[in-house]
Write a protein that binds this DNA or RNA. Structure first.
Length: 414
RNA sequence: GGAGAGUUGGCUGAGUGGUCGAAAGCGCCUCCCUGCUAAGGAGGUAACUGGGUAACUGGUUCGAGGGUUCGAAUCCCUCACUCUCCGCCA
């Protein structure tokens, strides 16, 4: 959520900054509403003040037995007037709030210009591409069964069998252990969240169609970012506790509305997938360094798994709604002959902190924190990458050294 | 599913119609005392927000939303959440 004061005082600047991400701010509408708000609010508050004074008099007069009829008439008049004005004011405040909730984060100055993913900037490429495999992961093994999943649930689900289910579990353990080694505290979290939590992270009200909603009005989490961030909703943190570093493994649920026809084969785009999330709450002064650190922590997993990848910085037109700066990590997918997203690491600045009311206390008073998070990593896509990069036509794949302790073997039957 | 209790400031917790933004304690801040530390003493200390260049000044907030009333932390209704006991259950 944008700071309304900043918006009021710098509306032209904000308009230009948001244009970088192709958001057009309706300045005139906001200005008109805010002007109306101002005059109504002054009026309402002076009426309230008057009522308060007169009501006090009322009590005194009554207790001394004096006539109160005139005073009551006056108060009735004020109350009638107040009721009308108040309703109007509330309507306007709600309109303003809806506008604010709809405004995406302002891209950081270090986020490059650009319209879409074609304008993203490759930061670095790591690891050698050695695989000559052209077979898609779904054709490499019968142990990823989407037909069976369709029977159980529908499209965009998958069943993992035997050694692949175990490989997934091993990957989860490796990722969590690595996160812990890097100072993140592991959390186990609810997989459903209430509306307020989703507003806090920026998923609602704008992206309701991307979420699964239960009959109890709870939402299935689209990422552990939601519960992790909301742990600190309405919390005042001491400065010396920062940075806070948390991690969690959760399934993620996404309706994938609007992605019909994209990545329909295999594990790439599912309604349910496993992910390890890395999450930080940071002092605003150091949040950009914290983002770089978190990115490195996510990259470390790919290095441990000996998978070739590249780091891409998203341009202003491609960053997510709540983000001000984002790096994507893309892993090499041999069958597609290209790099595919496997992690997205973002600094949200104070955007989520403002929505979620997360502040820290320091000599400078109370201020909003910055939130940073990223996948470390998306498990399903990691599993695919291992399969495809290591498949050599046989019934087994060799395993990277880092996985051997988790699977008790140097190879895996597929 | 049944029965009951509760939700007040950074924290604990008092407050049942006006003098309550709210006792007391803890914590925190300033000062005093004192070789140092500890202890002791005095005072201060909620958040959000509007108007104003400012001095200053107004409003809102006692879980949320409605209602009663001239006036609500306090009375009534609805909802959410927490806790206890019983039942059921991984």
């Amino acid at each position: 959520m944008i700071d309304i004061k900043f918006l009021r005082d710098n509306i032209n600047q904000v308009e230009h900054l948001l244009a970088r991400r192709d958001y057009s701010l309706d300045k005139d509408q906001f200005k008109a509403l805010d002007a109306e708000r101002k005059s109504l609010q002054v009026e309402v508050e002076s009426l309230q003040s008057e009522r308060k004074t007169l009501s006090n008099d009322f009590g005194k007069l009554k207790s001394s037995g004096e006539n109160i009829d005139d005073l009551k008439k006056k108060l009735d008049f004020i109350n009638d007037n107040l009721k009308i004005k108040n309703e109007l004011l509330n309507q306007i405040l709600e309109s303003i709030n809806n506008i604010l909730l709809d405004i995406p984060n302002i891209p950081h100055e270090s986020t490059p210009d650009g319209k879409n993913e074609n304008d993203n900037v490759i930061i670095r490429t790591v690891g050698k591409i050695t695989s000559k495999n052209t077979v898609d992961h779904i054709d490499i093994t019968k142990k990823i069964d989407t037909d069976l999943a369709a029977k159980l649930s529908g499209s965009r689900f998958a069943v993992l069998k035997g050694s692949l289910a175990k490989l997934q579990r091993a990957l989860i353990s490796l990722m969590l252990d690595t996160a812990q080694k890097n100072g993140y505290e592991e959390y186990y979290l609810p997989y459903m969240a209430n509306r307020e939590s989703l507003i806090g992270t920026g998923n609602l009200p704008k992206f309701e169609e991307d979420l699964f909603k239960t009959s109890e009005s709870l939402y299935l989490i689209p990422t552990a970012e939601v519960p992790l961030t909301n742990i600190y909703r309405d919390v005042l943190i001491n400065e010396d506790e920062l940075p806070i570093k948390l991690t969690a493994h959760t399934p993620c649920f996404r309706s994938e509305a609007g992605s019909y026809g994209r990545d329909t084969k295999g594990l790439i785009r599912q309604h349910q997938f496993e992910k390890i999330e890395l999450f930080k709450i940071s002092n605003p002064n150091t949040s950009m360094e914290e983002l770089e650190g978190l990115l490195e922590n996510a990259e470390e997993i790919l290095q441990l798994l000996e998978l070739p990848y590249q780091v891409v910085q998203l341009c202003a037109g491609d960053i997510g709604f709540s983000s001000c700066k984002t790096y994507d990590i893309e892993v090499w997918m041999p069958s597609q002959n290209k790099y595919r997203e496997i992690s997205s690491c973002s600094n949200f600045g104070d955007f989520q902190a403002r929505r979620s009311n997360i502040k820290f206390k320091s000599d400078m008073g109370k201020n909003f924190v910055h939130t940073i998070n990223g996948s470390g990593l998306a498990v399903g896509r990691t599993l695919i990458a291992i399969l495809e990069n290591r498949f050599d036509g046989g019934d087994f794949i060799s395993l990277p050294k880092a996985l051997e302790p988790y699977l008790g073997s140097s190879r895996l039957e597929i």
